[in-house]
């Protein structure tokens, strides 16, 4: 079923919408949540929460593509769950490690923290990622979007962990340089 038809089902408040979404993208959303949370039960809950969020936000939203819209929601819900787990001292290790690594990319000093600034930042990161060699881009996204561990990232791409670490190190440095050039700063 096409995204358009699934979204239409949401608009009609038909529960088929959830079933179709799960059929089309359930496995992928589970992958996202599992990568971040490293817990099967948590991942299942997050996928269900994603559908609930979809139910509550469509309408008025009419997302296109649906997969991207809900994929981002899955990631954000997973990260929120990690924060909760962290507060309850349950895991969150990879997320915190990845965040600490990302902190290296932030230019010194503080820029604006408003929404507009974040949109600009996303655009800048998009430009940066598209300028990267494909392998480096994939490793970066696997680590910082999916929040995968170094070990999992290495396994996924058939690389050694030292190679992944080395790529991430180089890309973080390049990103910092890129963001500085684009005025996120300083």
């Amino acid at each position: 079923m096409t995204d358009e038809k699934i979204v239409e089902l949401y608009w009609e408040r038909s529960e088929e919408a959830i079933k179709e979404t799960d059929k089309q993208y359930g496995r992928y959303f589970h992958y996202i949540a599992k990568e971040i949370l490293q817990d099967e039960e948590d991942a299942k809950e997050i996928v269900n929460d994603t559908y609930l969020k979809a139910w509550n936000s469509i309408p008025p939203e009419r997302p296109n593509p649906l997969k991207a819209f809900l994929g981002r929601i899955t990631r954000q819900l997973s990260l929120n769950r990690l924060e909760q787990n962290k507060a309850q001292k349950r895991g969150g290790g990879q997320y915190l490690l990845a965040l600490d690594e990302l902190a290296e990319c932030i230019p010194d000093g503080s820029g604006s923290e408003d929404l507009a600034s974040n949109i600009d930042l996303t655009d800048a990161i998009n430009r940066f990622l598209r300028s990267l060699p494909i392998e480096q881009r994939r490793v970066f996204i696997k680590r910082y979007w999916y929040m995968s561990s170094i070990t999992d990232t290495a396994t996924s791409f058939g690389m050694s962990e030292s190679k992944v670490t080395s790529i991430l190190f180089r890309v973080r440095n390049k990103l910092k340089e890129h963001l500085t050039k684009e005025g996120f700063n300083l």
């Binding site: 981002r72 990631r75 974040n118 990161i125 910082y144 979007w145």
Partner: peptide, 14 residues
């Protein structure tokens, strides 16, 4: 912020 910004990167790359 950078993590949030990453959340919205172009989904085709993800």
């Amino acid at each position: 912020n950078i993590s949030d910004a990453l959340n919205n990167i172009d989904f085709d790359m993800v």
